[in-house]
Design a protein around this nucleic acid. Structure first.
Lengths: 340, 340
DNA sequence: CGCTGCCAGGAAAGCGCTTACCTGAAGTGT
DNA sequence: ACACTTCAGGTAAGCGCTTTCCTGGCAGCG
């Protein structure tokens, strides 16, 4: 690998001059020399060693992002927003998949710190896990103490900048709509109970039902993996256990799609015999049959705002800027009146 | 940010000893000192500066990946395979989205070189663009000349290790199946014509039709964006222009989903009035209605093999290992006999 | 008891780059 | 013509870390 010294030697100049022309320094360099340096760069196919540059000029320009899994459509959207803002500002982003493993999340925070990133965005859901949360907070504090910036998406314990989707409102919206259509026997298919996302969505839904005096018995609620297959399995179990249900609420669209698949397989017509609703309004929601009634979350915007918070210092006064992005109900075909 | 020197000072040892303790060097260190160093690390919340480490110990352990867009389901799958192998071998991966912009692809190769990555995997499709290809090859050659390893997924001009999906075979399978079911008026909705992926899929399809003496007139073929909306738009145009078609071949599943959506909107029943087939077998293919008949490509495997090639030196003898991964037809419901 | 050999720990030389500071030559004013 | 700026270009000091090589102390040996 050619080094700056090689370039300088070949161009017959000092490394300082070579560096200056390569980086377009403000210090003037004679055209003649500049020319020679550029030629040497081309001939040697020189590319600066990024690590050496970062060491010498501690100008942290990359930002780290921790998500559960970029290839999950939910995070794909959020990441798109994150990336857009970062790119607009000339920042590179390092994306880390935690696969919902708290240990891995911790490791990544550490790793990103070692990479000297300018900011860390935690884009995965928060966990109900005091021990983990304490450790995470500790690590983030250490990072922030050295000038690192942190922003989180969703409800985390971490005090500081955050942007969150109105998960509770979304849950409530769903509940109210269900009630409006006469549903009283409602089954809920939730994701991992350790996620604050789940707590919040469920909380909103529960509140809506409670307001109407409609009970949500514990056995109408199933926790499962937060994906298609988890949804299908939970739906199967739920249907077997509680035959009287008229509607199934899946706490994200992936699960809802699984629910739909299971229902189709069992020959249950949706929404005539059973209503199904999802959450998130993933692209797929519009393409399944029947199209999914769901709650739309501005995911791209969520990412974009989070990155903006992470990159903008924020007036020193206001520690902890918190933005809540609205949830809206999207009515499609999978939710109908309760059969009677 | 605490440095190694800080740790050493606080522990009352030399930086050398601190480094040895922290990296678990083979050189023995007295328990007493080790203890002190570890304590100092904890107290200062010390995390080694990754850049400094890479400079001092040029042990390239990260690998770079260039894809079109990780959040596209196709690349999400490929990336999953890539990641799995990389993680198994303790390698970090940097993922770059080129968004099908050749310039950006070039920039990323350069950037990855600057990052001193151990290997670069080009996971996007190749382009039919002599100028771009030449520049890319040049850059990759420069990288390889300094010991970098390169592997590509798909058909690229780049000579060297490659793994490719049997796109042509897949196209042929689709063609044969269509013919078997009596289709003769076939419309094709292709993605960008500059992609080798498109050329190959189309080539296989064309070959199958040609073998049966069935023509594929140019106006039955539309090039569009390689996504859902592109598929929908092209389908609309195609239907308007060629009313006699009995089947629509979309060259990937995203487009096929768009086609399905358009057909639904126009009240065309699938497959009774019009057959639709896709390509790739994305997860969504099974969930749309009617479920999509498509060609399955082992995408995760594709990524996994590519990463394996990139990380395994390969016996010096065989330059350019090429693996072809098979395509298989997946029969579902969107393809039926041609209406007569 | 003096010598060699061994070993834990430290000093210091880089890794490749940037940049503050220095230098020497050319340009300016009187 | 001389002192004084001005300025292009070079010198060298780091950035934070690893690792080679050296040192000084100790045990083991004759």
């Amino acid at each position: 690998m050619a080094t700056l010294a090689d370039v300088a030697r070949r161009a017959g100049v000092s490394p300082a001059t070579a560096s200056r022309v390569i980086n377009g320094s403000s210090k003037p360099v004679a055209d003649e020399l500049r020319e020679r340096v550029l030629r040497a760069v081309a001939e040697l196919r020189y590319v600066p060693n990024a690590h050496a540059q970062l060491l010498a000029r501690p100008q942290r320009s990359v930002v780290g992002v921790v998500v559960h899994d970029v290839s999950d459509p939910y995070f794909a959207e959020v990441t798109r927003g994150l990336q857009r803002v970062a790119t607009d500002r000339g920042r590179l982003v390092i994306i880390c998949n935690s696969y919902r493993d708290p240990e891995r999340e911790l490791e990544y925070v550490e790793m990103l710190r070692g990479q000297q990133v300018a900011a860390i965005v935690l884009a995965g859901s928060g966990y109900h896990d005091a021990d983990f949360t304490a450790r995470l907070t500790e690590k983030l504090a250490a990072y922030e103490a050295t000038g690192g910036r942190v922003a989180v998406v969703g409800r985390h314990e971490h005090p500081g900048d955050a942007v969150m989707p109105a998960n509770d409102v979304g849950g409530r919206l769903l509940g109210e709509e269900l009630l409006r259509l006469g549903h009283r026997q409602i089954g809920v298919i939730a994701g991992p109970r350790v996620l604050t996302t789940i707590t919040d969505r469920l909380g909103g839904l529960r509140a809506a039902l409670a307001d109407a005096g409609v009970p949500l018995p514990e056995d109408h609620l199933r926790y499962a993996d937060f994906d298609r297959d988890g949804g299908a399995r939970a739906a199967a179990a739920l249907l077997d256990a509680c035959p009287g249900l008229t509607a199934l609420v899946a706490l994200n669209d992936s699960m809802a799609v699984g629910v739909l698949a299971l229902l189709r397989q069992r020959g249950v017509r949706v929404p005539e015999q059973m209503s199904v609703v999802g959450f998130d309004d993933m692209p797929v929601a519009a393409d399944v049959t029947p199209a999914l009634t769901t709650v739309r979350l501005p995911l791209v915007e969520l990412g974009a705002r989070a990155m903006t918070l992470a990159l903008d210092p924020g007036s020193a006064g206001d520690r902890s800027r918190v933005e809540v992005l609205p949830a809206t109900l999207v009515r499609r075909e999978s939710l109908g009146p309760a059969p009677r």
